[in-house]
Amino acid sequence: MLDQLKLKQIGGLKTETIIRLSRFVMQNNYFSYDDQYYHQVRGGAMGSPLTLTISNCYMYFFERQIVNQIRNSGGLYFRYIDDIFIITNWPGGHLLKEVDRWNKFDENIKLSASIGPTVNFLDLQIENKDGQLLTTVYQKPSYEPYYLPFNSIHPLHMKKNIPFAMLLRAIRYCSTFESYLNEREKLRMALLLNKYPNKTVDEQFNNMLLKFNINEPLTFNNYVRYRQIVINSPIKEKLVVNYEKSIFVHFT
């Protein structure tokens, strides 16, 4: 990857140093189980930032042929970590044959295909209904309606942010007013189960709308227009923090 990007150094570190440090981390993963210590000799440690980075670097080369193949046929290819989303006009049988061929690229990487007019990508469900794309929130079968309990000792602003953020996701994901209402009420019930006062839930739902200058309730007639306003609103960029000069103190 460093050769591909033609980088000689990053942040003052030479590529040789980066490679040596990375090799040291990958080759020195140890863990204990049942009073025994083990040395991991294949792969990387789960949760390690370096493992994720190296995996993405490897996938960059693994998927290049697939990406070109999909895009050259007028399709779309997206990947987030280990989830891939493809839109193509290929017949289902042809796509399955191609997936089988892709699975021969590397014996350690196996792709399993879910093909149909409705697919799930991360927490989004996408349906092709007579040429119209419909979206809504997707929840895995193992989903449980548990959020940070309102009676926890966490700061109040953290708990208030949950209904705010979850309703924002519902509006962004739900392409129809009906699916939005369904998701909103499921969210409300989950929050009530986690001891959130109904007043707090309503206040945060309303605050979310006010943030986008929406001063009236969402209805069947105005939902699409207001949803587009939410989607088109720019996302604030994260502030760059100089941790050598800044110190953060959190009081509870």
Rank of each mutant, 00 (worst) to 15 (best):
I66K: 09
L52F: 12
I81S: 13
L52R: 07
A113H: 07
N68R: 15
T88M: 01
F85D: 02
I115R: 02
T51N: 09
Q40M: 05
Y38K: 00
V99S: 07
S55C: 13
A45I: 02
L95R: 05
W102L: 14
D106K: 10
L111F: 15
E107C: 05
I84P: 09
M46G: 03
L76C: 10
R79Q: 03
D106R: 11
L52C: 14
I81P: 05
M59T: 00
N89Y: 03
R71N: 15
F105A: 03
M59Y: 04
H94D: 14
F121N: 06
G92W: 06
N120G: 01
V119W: 08
F85K: 00
S114D: 12
L50P: 01
V99L: 06
L50C: 04
T53I: 15
T51Y: 06
G75P: 03
V67H: 14
D83P: 06
G116H: 01
G74A: 05
L111Y: 08
S55A: 14
T53H: 07
I54T: 01
R42M: 01
Q65W: 13
S112A: 12
I87H: 04
R64C: 11
I66W: 14
Q36M: 08
H94S: 13
G116I: 02
S114W: 07
F121G: 01
Q69V: 03
V41R: 04
C57I: 12
W102I: 00
K97C: 10
E63K: 09
N68A: 13
R64D: 15
G93N: 11
S48D: 04
S112V: 15
K110A: 05
A45T: 09
L52W: 09
I86M: 05
D82W: 11
S112C: 06
R71H: 10
M46A: 12
I84E: 04
L52V: 13
S112K: 13
N108L: 14
R79D: 06
R64N: 12
K104V: 08
G93A: 14
G44E: 00
V41S: 06
W90G: 00
I70A: 03
G43T: 01
A113G: 04
N120L: 04
S48F: 12
M59W: 05
P49F: 02
G75M: 01
L95T: 07
E63C: 10
Q65C: 09
N108W: 07
R42T: 00
E107N: 08
F62R: 13
G74F: 04
Y37W: 08
V67F: 14
F61H: 08
F61Q: 09
N56W: 07
E98N: 08
S114A: 09
R71L: 14
L95C: 09
R42A: 07
N56F: 12
K104H: 13
Y77S: 02
I70K: 03
I70H: 09
G74I: 01
F105Q: 08
D106Y: 13
R71C: 10
F85V: 00
D82T: 05
H39W: 12
N103T: 07
K104A: 11
Y58V: 00
K104G: 03
R79T: 00
F62W: 13
W102D: 10
Y38D: 03
F105M: 04
Y60P: 02
